[in-house]
Simulated assay, not measured.
Amino acid sequence: MTYAFGLNGRNVMVTGGASGIGWCCVEALTRDGANVVIVDINAEGAEKAAETVRARGGRALALSFDVRDTAATEEAFSRAEAEMGPLDGLVAAAGIARSAPATEVTSDLWEAVIGVNLTGLFYTVQAAGRRMVARGRGSIVTIGSTSSIGGQAGRAAYCAAKAGVVGLTKDLAIEWGSYGVRINAVGPSVTDTPMVRNGLPEKFLTDVVAERTPLGRLGMPEEVANTCLFLLSDLSSYITGTLLMVDGGVSSGFFTAQNGRDLSSKAMLAAGKYKE
């Protein structure tokens, strides 16, 4: 179903925009008439996504940089605004997932997950915020998770990063609100994306996620994208500093499976760290 959010003609950057939730945001934005800057570490994927938008009659720019690199981030924002005009919105959707029992988390794993999902996200929203604060307008959406408000066995780094995203979002809402800049987070549960399908055992998706979700299924990336567009739009003009859950009711409850030993990772399942 297509909805109208009033974003026609606005310029919006989407990090992680070549796949998953990011790509669904790009599609939804272009259907609503927005111009998009598609950012992805996968340069080929970003350009292919932009070509798809252009083929449909939309306006798109593809950029590729590592969100952990502050200089590259600043350079990319400058180029985006030089070629597309001032940014009205940002969806910070770039993210990775790595799993291991907490006792086995390596420094490389920790730094990678925290680096992309929290540090890199901060650099991205900081670059956007500097420009939006100066202009006195703008809306930013960060991607949190159900892991922002509760743990999940085997995902210490991911949960720490996603909890940090919400804390950061609330702080920036306070700092930037008086300048006319809003920032909110969305909190998806397990969403049916390639990253999820590649990383979680099928039995976990059906017997744990769907079975323990009040709406009885995984979320769809389009549903997360629609929520992001709502928060970017003037329909949410008095909302800032909020974590809006998009989780089918998962966060309404408390229980997990196997006394917290459902480590929810194909890699750990194959390595014999736990059994289904």
Score class of each variant (00 low, 15 high):
V208I: 14
G219W: 12
R79F: 01
L90E: 11
L87H: 04
R54F: 08
T213E: 06
G22H: 09
V91Q: 04
V125H: 05
A60R: 12
S178T: 15
A46T: 04
S145D: 11
V125Q: 11
T52A: 15
A210H: 11
A210E: 15
V113Q: 03
F255T: 04
R10E: 15
P86E: 08
A94S: 13
I21R: 07
A49H: 08
A97N: 11
A185P: 01
R197T: 06
A49G: 07
F77W: 13
Q126N: 15
E276W: 08
V190A: 14
P101H: 10
V208S: 14
L29C: 14
T146I: 15
A34Q: 01
I174P: 01
E222W: 10
D69P: 02
M245N: 13
A102K: 05
V166K: 09
S147K: 08
G260Q: 04
V133A: 10
T256R: 14
G167P: 00
S78G: 15
A128H: 10
A50V: 03
V36R: 12
R261L: 07
A34P: 02
A92G: 01
E75H: 14
D108E: 15
S178F: 08
T124E: 06
R197S: 02
V250A: 12
T52S: 13
G17W: 13
D234K: 09
A271I: 00
S237V: 10
A76D: 05
M195F: 05
L118V: 03
S189D: 06
N8E: 12
Y179L: 01
D247F: 15
R137D: 09
G167T: 07
A72L: 07
T191R: 10
R197F: 03
A49Q: 06
L118Q: 04
R135C: 04
L200N: 06
G9V: 00
V196L: 01
G180I: 03
A71S: 10
K203E: 14
N184E: 03
L235N: 10
F77D: 12
P86L: 06
A134H: 08
L235R: 11
G22V: 02
A210C: 14
G272P: 06
W23N: 03
G199T: 13
E111S: 14
A185S: 15
E83I: 01
Y274T: 09
G248I: 02
V208Q: 14
R155M: 13
L61N: 05
F254P: 00
S178D: 12
E222K: 11
K273A: 08
P194D: 11
T119V: 11
N35F: 04
V12A: 12
T52E: 12
A97H: 13
